[in-house]
Design a protein around this nucleic acid. Structure first.
Lengths: 189, 189
DNA sequence: CAGCTTGGTTCAGTGAATGAACCAATCCTC
DNA sequence: GAGGATTGGTTCATTCACTGAACCAAGCTG
């Protein structure tokens, strides 16, 4: 299906449907990276967890070139990571599918790694278990009740490392200055 | 340090030391992706977990252009994800640092996601807890003894989804046809 | 010393990201 | 229902990174 499945991995990159392919990789990691490994893609997915749903909000919050955003939203939708739900007029929204939601451990893991190694002032955002307010630890478990916390039960809140709010923050950044439950829309809509 | 820390995130990508920067991102994920988010980078890190240590082995196994491999190894070394340990002559080796090893949950998570959604015949490689042989579950815990398994205690073994070995497999692929403990060198060295 | 292996570097060709400008369909206001 | 602002894109010239093949120099081997 993806060229020769026999290694050595990654020979002759021919015509393939998938963007940024690691041709014929018999490896699950390479396959995953074909879907979410492109530049900007995982940031789009993270924003989707945070509740961003509209084209303009992704664009303003990430500072991503609009042409690239168009491409990434199309790829993610084609790969069933996001679903495009049509709204009023052209104002359709993008939301995570179950497959997209299952990327949560990866997104959380990478954020934690970044905080651990580059967050001099502590994590920029912290994750809390909504029912009891306990912190979500590195393994994804609530440090209070011990439960394995699913993303729908997580609240993002500003952490000690988050820079102070500025009056010219974009709407998404401004909204995320307050605790917010993952996967719920950030703006009324 | 990385441009303005105030959002909107990612304005004016000027001259920056970091490769593939998401300029001024006040976000831990963006910071992490600056280090391990480039094309090929995470595959190099995965191979390092599997015990690949030499330039030629990375190149042969991944099929990555040598110029790109040179760049990635230099970046990862500069970022203290890999360490270059000089060997005999120019035969130096690259091995994961503690910071690199702490990427294990991310690498395992992405491989698991790829297997879950694209591995029609089951996982291509499975991870076992070395002391008792129990499978390592999605959360990184041993399904036998329940312990939180560190990568040094993990054995990679071929899974049901792995294509059959071929006589012209590269040496790394051939070596990985047998169970192998993570972080230990794949070839005698 | 000749030749092979290893670990790169160089370079031309290609493809993708960037960012600014533009556009068409809505929605709001009057 | 006319005019303007919003929204969700598309287009395009420029810049940048990846690709892949060729080349090279330092060590080892016979």
């Amino acid at each position: 299906m993806f060229g020769s499945l026999n290694e050595p991995i990654g020979r002759y990159a021919g015509a393939m449907a998938l963007p940024r392919d690691y041709t014929g990789q018999a490896c699950s990691l390479a396959r995953a990276l074909e879907v979410v490994g492109e530049r900007w893609t995982l940031l789009v997915v993270r924003d989707a967890f945070f509740g961003v749903r509209r084209f303009g909000d992704f664009a303003d919050h990430l500072g991503i070139p609009r042409a690239v955003l168009t491409d990434r939203l199309a790829s993610l939708t084609a790969q069933d990571v996001l679903a495009r739900v049509p709204g009023a007029g052209r104002r359709s929204e993008y939301e995570l599918t179950a497959k997209g939601v299952s990327l949560w451990p990866v997104v959380r893991g990478l954020m934690a790694w970044g905080d651990d190694h580059y967050g001099e002032k502590g994590p920029r955002r912290v994750f809390l278990h909504a029912p009891d307010g306990g912190a979500v630890g590195p393994g994804g478990h609530c440090e209070g009740c011990g439960a394995d916390v699913s993303p729908a039960d997580v609240v993002v809140a500003p952490g000690p490392g988050l820079p102070p709010a500025s009056p010219d923050d974009d709407p998404v950044t401004a909204a995320l200055a307050a605790p917010h439950r993952l996967l719920t829309p950030l703006r009324a809509g």
